[in-house]
Amino acid sequence: MLLKTLFPATVAMALLCTATAKSQQSMPPDAKPGFEVVTIKPAPADETRQGFDLQGRHIKLMRESVLNIIIFAYSMHPKQVVDAPDWVSTEFFDVDGVPDVEGEPNLVQYQYLLQRLLAERFGVRMHKAKRDLPDYALRIMPGGIKFAKTTWTKDNLPHQGGHNGADGQTMTFTNSSMADFLLLGIQHVVDRPVVDETGLTGRYDFALHWLPDPIKAPDGDAAPGLFTAMREQLGLELKATKGPVDVLVVDSVEKPGAN
Rank of each mutant, 00 (worst) to 15 (best):
K242I: 07
T153E: 15
P212V: 09
A119Y: 03
P85W: 14
Q111D: 07
Q55I: 01
Y110L: 15
G143W: 07
S177K: 02
P42H: 15
L236M: 12
A84H: 15
S177P: 14
L183N: 01
T150Q: 04
A119D: 14
T151A: 15
S65N: 02
Q55G: 01
L211H: 06
F35H: 03
L67R: 11
G51N: 12
A148M: 11
F7H: 11
F7K: 04
L61P: 05
K4A: 10
A223P: 05
I140R: 05
L248H: 14
P142Y: 12
T5L: 11
F72W: 14
D135I: 09
G235Y: 10
F206A: 02
P244Y: 07
L3I: 14
R125P: 00
E232C: 02
S26N: 10
V66H: 05
E64W: 11
F7T: 04
G243S: 15
F181P: 00
V190S: 12
R231Q: 12
L208W: 12
T48F: 09
P78K: 09
R63A: 09
D53F: 05
F122V: 00
I70V: 13
H163Q: 13
T153I: 14
L208V: 09
A207N: 14
G123H: 08
T18N: 05
S26M: 12
I145Q: 13
P193W: 04
G162V: 03
D221M: 12
L16A: 00
P224Y: 00
N175G: 08
R139Y: 15
P134M: 07
L133T: 07
A84N: 15
N175E: 10
D251Y: 04
D180S: 00
V11E: 07
A223E: 11
D53T: 04
M76T: 00
L61A: 06
F35A: 03
I71D: 08
V81F: 03
A21F: 01
Y136V: 00
V247Y: 02
G165T: 10
G257Q: 15
F52V: 07
A43I: 05
L61Y: 07
M27C: 09
K32H: 03
N259F: 13
L182M: 15
R131H: 08
P158Y: 04
A229S: 07
T18E: 14
Q109D: 04
A222Q: 08
V190W: 13
N259L: 12
R49I: 13
S252Q: 14
